[in-house]
Design a protein around this nucleic acid. Structure first.
Lengths: 118, 118
DNA sequence: CTTTCATTTGAATAACTGTTCATATATCGA
DNA sequence: TCGATATATGAACAGTTATTCAAATGAAAG
């Protein structure tokens, strides 16, 4: 018998395929982290914030103005964007200016946008 | 005065910037759709399903086996992936085979993966 | 037509998430 | 030091969502 996988496929329809696919899956941790990243893009408020920052560096109050949101809501979302390195910030007196951290953000959003336009 | 924007920026710090950024924002509908798309990628179960389908076409039961999930849970998620055209399917007797619908899926995930590896 | 198998669907529950409101921190000027 | 301003944070509430379980399709075989 060519089958010797104990964990998988006792009732599987295609045990060989199941085993092969399973073997090539990335680690659970990687898949989890990836989902976490996309989760961040999966909120329209955060997407709006990112699009606003596409144009130029902005302070918190201006982002709130642009998007018609409360300052608190914006600050909460910026915190999340900061955590996964999508935005960076610099302080100038009382004001904190946010900007995109790298170009991955643009690439990822561009790919998403491409899929939508069908 | 060079400012004449009625809707925005009564209390904004940089009214001119606010107005400019706001003018260049995509429509709310587009931004909402984009967030909806990323929301689909933002769940580790769905990400796992997509990665499994990277390898080959699979039927529902095999996906469940590969990922160690209930058939029902997989079916529910496949429904969502189907709705936004990320996967397609074909029926063969009682069995339904799922596969990736286009290469956008790979591109989007590749971009996300690139960001994580830092 | 009845049984069996693969998948789908619906309802219910539990967990998560974004906003709001109130409060706290931080910086600057008087 | 005190007040004003910009931002951050914490708790609470409301809305959303993924899973489970049970039941329902849909398709082939006898």
């Amino acid at each position: 018998m060519s089958q010797s996988n104990p964990t998988a496929s006792e009732t599987a329809f295609h045990p060989d395929v199941v085993e092969h696919v399973r073997a090539d899956l990335p680690s659970d941790e990687f898949l989890y982290d990836l989902a976490e990243l996309f989760k961040v893009f999966g909120d329209s408020t955060r997407i709006k914030v990112l699009f606003a920052l596409f144009e130029s560096e902005l302070c918190v109050g201006d982002i709130a103005q642009v998007l018609n949101l409360s300052q608190s809501a914006v600050s909460h979302q910026l915190r999340i964007l900061k955590q996964c390195k999508l935005v960076k910030f610099r302080r100038e007196g009382k004001t904190v200016y946010y900007s995109l951290d790298d170009d991955h953000v643009r690439s990822i959003i561009a790919m998403g946008a491409e899929h939508i336009e069908d």
